[in-house]
Computed example of a mutant assay.
Amino acid sequence: MGKFAAGGIFAGLLGIDQAVKQYIEENYDEEREEKTKIPGVLLRKFYNKGLIFSSFEKHSGLPLKVSLIGTGVIFLADVKVFLCKGRKLCKAGLTLVTAGAISNTYDRIMKGAVVDYIGYDGKHKLLRSLTANLADFYVVIGIMLAQLGRGKR
């Protein structure tokens, strides 16, 4: 994956997540209004002021600091990997991770919380209580791809 292709994919992924977040913010109430659009998936608006699973939300400023540091580390890893030839799977993974990290960090800076909107529509109470966004999926999938492509040229 070339630098320009990765840049275009990055911009597209970031734009999609931010556009969906804006749509959710404009069209959903935060009181856990839920709409099933896809079987098994609930769309709802939830402002996550903490980190993963709303952890550390009562620690003022910590989620933003962690997001900024994490995004900086990811960016440095990107620079190192993208300067190397090959490693396409690793580069694809880092592109996903970077888009997700920047999207969520942008939310923390601009809104004070990350806009989550994807929920599980099932009977399991714990799973049903979780809410994520596309950026979260980008990060998880990107980490898996980067690990699979680690060391491969």
Rank of each mutant, 00 (worst) to 15 (best):
G2T: 10
K3A: 13
F4K: 15
A5W: 12
A6G: 14
G7Y: 11
G7E: 11
F10T: 07
F10N: 11
G12S: 14
Q18Y: 01
A19K: 00
A19N: 02
V20P: 02
Q22Y: 09
Y23V: 01
Y23E: 06
E25D: 14
E25C: 07
D29F: 12
D29A: 13
E30H: 08
E31H: 11
R32C: 10
R32M: 14
T36G: 05
I38V: 14
I38A: 03
G40H: 07
V41H: 01
V41A: 10
R44Y: 10
R44F: 04
R44G: 10
K45A: 08
F46C: 05
Y47K: 12
G50K: 05
G50Q: 05
L51E: 04
L51M: 15
I52P: 00
S54V: 04
S54P: 00
S54L: 07
E57H: 13
E57K: 13
K58S: 12
K58Q: 02
H59R: 11
S60R: 14
L62C: 05
K65W: 15
K65S: 15
S67T: 08
S67H: 13
L68Q: 09
L68F: 09
I69W: 09
G70D: 09
G70V: 01
T71L: 10
T71W: 03
T71H: 04
G72M: 09
I74Y: 00
F75C: 11
A77K: 03
D78H: 07
F82G: 05
K85E: 15
G86E: 06
R87W: 11
R87K: 15
L89Q: 06
C90R: 10
K91S: 08
K91N: 07
A92W: 08
G93P: 05
T95C: 15
T95V: 14
L96A: 11
L96T: 00
L96G: 05
V97K: 00
T98K: 11
A99D: 07
A99W: 02
A101S: 03
A101Y: 03
A101W: 05
I102Q: 02
S103A: 15
S103T: 05
N104L: 09
I109D: 06
K111H: 12
G112E: 03
A113F: 13
A113P: 02
V114C: 02
V115T: 15
D116F: 03
Y117K: 03
I118Y: 04
I118Q: 06
I118V: 12
G119T: 03
D121Y: 00
G122I: 12
G122Q: 09
G122K: 09
K123A: 12
H124V: 14
H124W: 14
L127S: 08
S129C: 04
T131P: 00
T131D: 01
A132E: 00
A132P: 00
N133A: 05
L134Y: 02
A135S: 07
A135Y: 00
D136N: 00
D136E: 01
D136W: 01
F137V: 07
Y138A: 05
V139R: 00
V140Y: 00
V140N: 11
G142T: 06
I143N: 03
Q147E: 09
Q147W: 11
G149W: 07
R150F: 13
R150W: 13
R150Y: 14
R150L: 10
G151I: 15
G151A: 11
K152G: 06
